[in-house]
Every structure is written in C-alpha cells, then in structure tokens.
Amino acid sequence: MSEILKTEDLVFSYNNGSPVKRAAINKVSFTLKKGETLGIIGHTGSGKSTLVQTLNGLIKPESGTVFLDGEDLWKNPKQVYQKRFRVGLVFQYPEYQLFEETVYKDIAFGPKNMGLSEEEIDFRIKKYISLLGLNLNYLEKSPFDLSGGEKRRVALAGILAMEPEVLVLDEPTAGLDPVGRENLFKAIELYKKERSAAVIIVSHSMEDLARLSDKLLVMNLGEAKMFGTVEEVFARYEELSKMGLDVPVVTKILLELKALGLNVNTKAFTPAQAIKNIELLLKEGDINA
C-alpha cells in the first residue's frame, strides 16, 4: 500500500524568538501507509499533541516537511485549508467542542465547510451517526442533553463525516468506561476498513495500543526515540522503562516469569500471544532457563 502521510525532521518551538523558547518537537520523522494504524506513546509534555497538530496544518513547522499523499502540506499555504479536510483531527475531550443546536447541525458543520451538496451531507450524517452506534432519533436532540459518551461519539461523527484519509485521535478514550472504550474502538476499526484510511492514536494505554497498532512511535522530550512495529518497540522495554514508559501488563508478567528463572519467550504483547508462549514453554518440556 502506498504512503499517505510522511514527516521529515519536523521542528517546532513554542515562544520562538523569545528567551523562553522551548522546543516542543525536534526532528520528528515517520511514515504511515494507507490502512495502517500508528500508535503514539509518550509522557504528558513529550510533544505528542504538538506533533499531531502539525499533521493537518494547524501548526506550521519551523523546519521539516509534512507530506500528504506525496505532496508538501505547505507547498501552497493558501491551500492548507483544503488539505485539512483530508486529515481529520479529533482532540482530547472533543465533546467540549460541540456547539450547535442539534446533533444534526453539529455533524453537518464540517461537511458544509467542504462545500458538499445538501443530499450528500444528509447521507453522510445518517451514515456516520449509525456507524457510531447512535439511533437516528438522536439527530434532532440538543448535543448538550446527551451523556458524556454519547457526546464524544457525536463529535467523532462530525469528523468522520468529512471522510478524512488520515484519522488522528488524541487520547480518544480518556474518561470513558470499558464498554464505551470498546464501542469507540470498534467504530474506528469499521471506518478504517471501509475507507482504507490510516489511523493515528495517541494513548497512554500500552494494552490498547498493542492490540490496535501496526506501528508505534515513541516520543520523549520532543524527540522521536523509537519508530517501528509493535514488536520492535516493546522488545526495547528496558529503554522504555528508563523513559518512565510501560510495556503491556502481559509482557511484564512474562518478564517476571523469566526473572523467576523460566525459559519463556517474552515477545508477547497481547494475552493471546502470551498464552501461546506459556504453552510453548510446556511443550518444550524444559521450562528452566
């Protein structure tokens, strides 16, 4: 599959030109193909949120380039606005950005700005509210009468209705309970499959990222410290732990088993993989290292 998004040596500092200048991201490079999911890991303050805002041109990098479908995002600064529709950015707590009288109007806001026809907008609103598991009779409700989880789904529907080729989500499940979290992830997977979209998820949950991502990008102090497959990144657990980051719980369990003296393969990042490794240990007979 072809590369849809690519960054090269992105640099951005806050308070540039003042004595309190602080580099938020420094020489960050990664690539993302159509249909791939990239997980971004890093502490609060590591530059994750700044990075995602450069991807649709909300922030113009000081140096370095964002390529969208092979083309420099800032090649013609007047056209950045048009390109923004192609990279949908869902902020943390997007429900705080709902503002319209009805759910219908709120979801319509983005597609309207794209200049789509009324019919097309209507079609997309109904399609994406359903994809997010909300009944059509929600459309005439005020978004402010909904529960927190419902509001979040409406906010996400508003982004999906623009049918972005790259969907970027900053901590999409913060504050949701396990059922709400599962539903949200299911909707994202459905969208991704149907549109062959690329997805970027910023999250603190290593367990969720291990399950959803193809690749991981590890940010620390504004720099991209690691970029690779889930397996490649989580295999470097010692470095991750030095940065104060975790590996999935099941990986920790296998590492503990190894420390207890068992000859177990610690390369497992989901429960299913871990079980396979534990069973393998028994088949091989000699469980001691």
Binding site: L254, E256, I275, I278
Partner: peptide, 28 residues
C-alpha cells in the same frame, strides 16, 4: 490484563486462580 491471562490459562486446564492483579503476583 493479568486477570484475563490467568482466567484463560485456567480454562485451558492450568491450576491457577485468576484473582491476581499485579504482574508480579500473577507471574508467581
């Protein structure tokens, strides 16, 4: 995740109890 892992192992016939949360306790 620790409890999930233990409970699947139990279903598979391992003699484990699933009620351990910390990775260390689960590993033990």
């Amino acid at each position: 995740q620790s409890v999930e892992l233990l409970s699947v192992l139990k279903q598979k016939g391992f003699n484990v109890k699933p009620g351990y949360i910390s990775p260390k306790a689960a590993a033990k």
